[in-house]
């Protein structure tokens, strides 16, 4: 029952994350900024619109947004993205989680390539290249957790007595935060605010989607942020019955919105990396995770 509540809370609250980030960025820029509920308004607007399909694109293009969101919803089911356990759990679900995210990206890339646009092809190429570099960092981080907890399930990892502590915890958190920024297309990897197609990574892949399709994509992006954010937050905050910490949804929510605020601060304090330098940062995340694996 509590897991269902967590699941529902994630579905409901995920679009708040981009809103919070935007407000923090606006604050740093000396502006008031848009409402934190902006994405909800945008979703309602997009869902009320019709979609435009190019005659050059086929069913893959229409499948992309739906399949991508479906994969993310499935991933949410195995992720304890709240104060409690997850909706579903089995040994090996962390692998499934990682590959559901990969599946979501795969169908988005296919949909982008289906348009035949040189922009979208460029974006797809960048997305695949960078995510291939982010994946080792993510897997190595998971490996550290699995090694300490002795289990390949998020539930067991996060509900066991604080699996990772001290230096390895800091290293894994650093690696996961970098992955969080990269996978969610935030600065310094990508600029979610830019209108410049040539510099985009993720955004340029979804340029041709419109109306309800784009609503699914925007919502999926918020959900993905919630998912990856949950990994960071559940690791950073002391949950787990073993250590005596309360299973507190309030604490989790505080954590995930603090993460959004931290993301906003990072985005306000630095410029985007040159595209050439992105692989270096992603590889360094892998190295951090690897170091954590060695010392844990």
């Amino acid at each position: 029952m509590t897991a269902i509540a967590d699941f529902a809370a994630a579905l409901l609250l995920a679009p708040l994350l981009p809103g919070v980030i935007n407000r923090v960025k606006a604050f740093f820029a000396g502006r008031r900024g848009q409402s934190v509920f902006q994405l909800y308004y945008d979703l309602r607007k997009l869902l009320a619109k019709g979609a435009v399909y190019s005659s050059a694109s086929g069913f893959v293009f229409r499948l992309g947004p739906v399949a991508s969101l479906a994969a993310l919803l499935a991933a949410l089911a195995v992720m304890p993205a709240g104060g409690h356990g997850s909706l579903a759990s089995f040994d090996g679900d962390i692998i499934l989680f990682a590959y559901l995210l990969a599946l979501s990206r795969f169908v988005t890339v296919l949909a982008a390539l289906d348009t035949g646009s040189s922009f979208e092809g460029m974006g797809a190429s960048r997305e695949v290249f960078f995510s291939a570099l982010a994946e080792p960092a993510f897997f190595l981080s998971l490996a550290v957790l699995a090694k300490k907890a002795g289990a390949f399930s998020f539930n067991l990892i996060f509900l066991s007595a604080n699996p990772v502590t001290g230096t390895p915890l800091l290293l894994v958190l650093a690696a996961l935060f970098i992955v969080f920024l990269a996978e969610n297309c935030r600065i310094p990897f990508d600029d979610p605010n830019t209108h410049l197609e040539l510099t985009m990574i993720h955004e340029v892949m979804v340029l041709d989607h419109s109306g309800p399709d784009f609503a699914l994509i925007s919502y999926g992006a918020a959900l993905k942020m919630w998912l990856l954010g949950a990994v960071v937050v559940r690791l950073a905050l002391p949950f787990g019955g073993g250590t005596g910490g309360a299973q507190s949804p309030a604490l989790f929510l505080a954590g995930i919105f603090a993460l959004a605020i931290a993301t906003g601060i990072v985005e306000s304090c630095m410029a985007r990396l040159r595209l050439l330098k992105v692989p270096a940062l992603l590889l360094s995340a892998s190295m951090l995770a690897f170091a954590a694996f060695m010392v844990s």
């Binding site: 740093f28 000396g30 502006r31 600065i187 605010n193 410049l196 306000s268 410029a271 985007r272």
Partner: peptide, 16 residues
């Protein structure tokens, strides 16, 4: 220029 590299504070201030 600041906006193009995703550096928001200078972009917003200079706009004003």
């Amino acid at each position: 220029l600041a906006g193009d590299v995703g550096y928001l504070p200078t972009m917003s201030f200079c706009g004003r």
